[in-house]
Nucleic acid binder design. Structure first.
Lengths: 188, 188
DNA sequence: AACAACATGTAATAAGTTACATGATTGG
DNA sequence: CCAATCATGTAACTTATTACATGTTGTT
């Protein structure tokens, strides 16, 4: 239900870390992306990879070291790096922008990432504040009939997700601030 | 990133509870569906509503009580009810099938819903068991470079989500089993 | 010898977004 | 009277799924 055009950015983000084949990307998506409730199929990955090369955002090496001769390893170009960094830096509009961008957080400054997390946390806190009403609505049998019990269970899970995210944001911000202090210690 | 064809089923599920307009559906999606990380736009809802009517899955009443004269209230037909019930009952293949079907759980027996939840819980428990390895991988700087810290933070959030789901499943199963006992008390 | 994993792709189709277009009613 | 909410829709476009098609390499 997303259709968010994340695939292209996720691929560029990954490639910014290290060169990869389409197969590698798919494997990563299967193992890691699912924790963020997403997926990417080959039918999506390969065309995007071709597009990236065509647009000068990536270069391709056929049969790189440690890979099969038919494999195509993609490497992000300077232009590609600029493009993905610009996306990470851009305003977070969609629900999962922050979480997804976080995967490639090193592309922007620690301060910028902290800013994103603070905003995200605030947003979730605000949403949590109005969620009690939804929970009451969900349990209202005049609205949901026999589904009222089920709807309130789902709403409770949603509240749990959001509470976790708030707590997680707090921890993440603390961690990043520690990291920042260490960085400035190093430059001093 | 989903493109899962959930929209049609969600709309039918909602309509099975009570007749609604496209606007009502959109509002519900905006308020409630987002807790399951989904969304539905008007550009999606209205065409689906027309399609449901065309296919005899829903009937429409223009300008119902309490609504504006131009409003179109959709009501699920017997055929529509059968279609949505068949979907709820069908095997859960996609990541979020169980959670979404849960919203309209009253369409199937309590036992069937318990079965789905038990399977879902088991699946998540199995996934959690292999997640420690991913967490170690995520923190590996030789793989993720400067993103290692970020990747491990995201993986930790993922683990938290899954743990919550396991705990939530347990509670939900307990609740439904209590409900079942009450039901059988009533029929005795 | 068989099977899992590695490896790449395409075409048809389906699904979803975005922007546009319009207008009435209600509450402050 | 202005803004928010109610209310419906379409068209162009983009994005994603599914099923197909093919072949190699490493492990048991």
């Amino acid at each position: 239900m997303a259709k968010t055009n994340y695939a292209k950015y996720v691929i560029m983000g990954l490639l910014s870390g290290c060169p990869m084949t389409g197969y590698d990307i798919r494997k990563w998506a299967d193992e890691c992306l699912k924790y963020l409730l997403m997926d990417m199929s080959y039918g999506q990955i390969y065309p995007i990879l071709n597009q990236l090369e065509r647009d000068g955002l990536a270069t391709v090496a056929v049969g790189s070291a440690g890979k099969r001769p038919e494999s195509k390893t993609y490497r992000l170009t300077e232009k590609g790096l600029e493009t993905i960094t610009a996306w990470i830096r851009s305003p977070d509009t969609k629900e999962y922008d922050v979480l997804l961008k976080m995967c490639f957080g090193s592309l922007i400054s620690t301060d910028e990432m902290i800013g994103k997390l603070k905003a995200y946390r605030q947003k979730r806190e605000a949403e949590l504040a109005i969620m009690d009403r939804y929970l009451a609505d969900a349990g209202d049998e005049t609205v949901y009939g026999p589904n009222a019990l089920y709807m309130s269970m789902i709403t409770m899970l949603g509240i749990t997700y959001f509470k976790d995210e708030v707590a997680w944001c707090k921890d993440a911000i603390t961690l990043l601030e520690k990291k920042k202090r260490k960085e400035s210690d190093g430059t001093r």
